[in-house]
């Protein structure tokens, strides 16, 4: 007897979020990035449509990273600490379609730059490269509330994706995104209930649901990856079943989490049985990223160009028909 495959039919689609604005839309980007829009679980294209493939954003800093391993610093050479050069290298040499600028320079550990100075950095990068931009604060709520509104204003009309809004600190950023026409990242601590609540709070402020991207917070391989995976999967199932307050694309900060892992950074001479550190950290980032693709990640923010290249190949392969 022939086996008939059961196919799921889902009630709801994930919202499509557009990052970047071309001249036509009032910005200056050469192209835009669309994420979301799918009506099925990851890569099950027989059960629904997947109009936009997952995308990878290169993470760049406006400061010299203090704790990056030599392996991770090597590909960027003397661009570290020079955000414009760094951005150009990612776009021109590594063919980045999307950049994620982390404004670490605003942090007290990294120079404590003023909001005005950070806004200048944003302007310079937008001038130097024409790819859409994600902008992330330094992680200090008080400072971010000063810096991000200035940066949002500096990038007005460019439809960036700006983060992160948190359950107890979302109003300032949501108001800025609303005023200056940007999308927002809503961050929750591996907690689907808070993710949903935050989306409600933000949309109650008037930001439409198709301008919100969920950062579910992830753990790297060996550091809670499976928790992140199950949270993302649960949210996605609920969204496809009709829960509009979870029907947002996911952004995952893969580079940040992966390269924090001891297993990614430690030198071979410290742990000979772990093998060559030149490959290990890259593999850690790749494996974390590919697992999250299966969990439903729409945007992967990554660091090492080799890991990016391999994960991009995986995405292409997964979407082959």
């Amino acid at each position: 007897m022939a086996v008939e495959f059961l196919k799921m039919k889902w009630a709801n689609a994930i919202n499509e979020v557009v990052i970047g604005a071309t001249k036509q839309d009032g910005g200056s980007r050469s192209s835009v990035i669309k994420v979301g829009g799918q009506t099925t679980l990851p890569y099950l294209s027989d059960e629904g449509s997947i109009p936009n493939p997952p995308v990878i954003a290169y993470e760049i800093w406006d400061a010299t990273p203090g704790d990056w391993s030599e392996v991770l610093k090597e590909p960027f050479g003397n661009c570290l600490g020079k955000p414009v050069e760094w951005a150009k290298k990612c776009v021109n040499e590594f063919k980045a379609d999307l950049l994620c600028l982390r404004l670490m320079g605003a942090h007290s550990d990294y120079g404590n730059n003023s909001a005005e100075k950070e806004a200048e950095v944003v302007k310079d990068i937008l001038k130097a490269v024409d790819k859409p931009l994600i902008i992330i604060g330094c992680g200090d709520d008080e400072k971010d509330n000063l810096v991000l509104p200035k940066c949002a204003e500096a990038a007005k009309g460019e439809r960036c994706l700006i983060g992160s809004a948190l359950q107890d600190n979302y109003k300032t950023l949501a108001a800025s995104c609303l005023a200056d026409g940007h999308n927002i990242i809503a961050e929750s601590p591996i907690d689907i209930n808070i993710a949903k609540q935050l989306n409600i709070l933000i949309s109650d402020m008037g930001l439409s649901q198709d301008r919100i991207v969920i950062n579910p917070t992830i753990g790297a391989l060996g550091y809670g990856l499976e928790y992140a995976y199950s949270i993302m999967e649960r949210g996605r199932l609920s969204a496809l079943n009709g829960d509009k307050m979870l029907a947002m694309p996911y952004v995952c900060f893969v580079g940040y989490e992966s390269w924090r892992a001891k297993e990614a950074k430690a030198l071979e001479k410290e742990f000979p049985e772990w093998g060559n550190e030149k490959d290990r950290g890259i593999a850690w980032e790749m494996v974390t990223a590919t697992a999250l693709l299966q969990a439903g990640a729409d945007i992967l923010v990554m660091r090492h160009p080799k890991a990016v290249g391999e994960v991009q190949k995986t995405i292409n392969k997964l979407l082959e028909k």
Binding site: K196, S203, G242
Partner: peptide, 15 residues
Amino acid sequence: KQIYCDSFLNAYRKK
């Protein structure tokens, strides 16, 4: 059948 959040009544009505 619905994922909990503090504003679950409001969330349901947003459908």
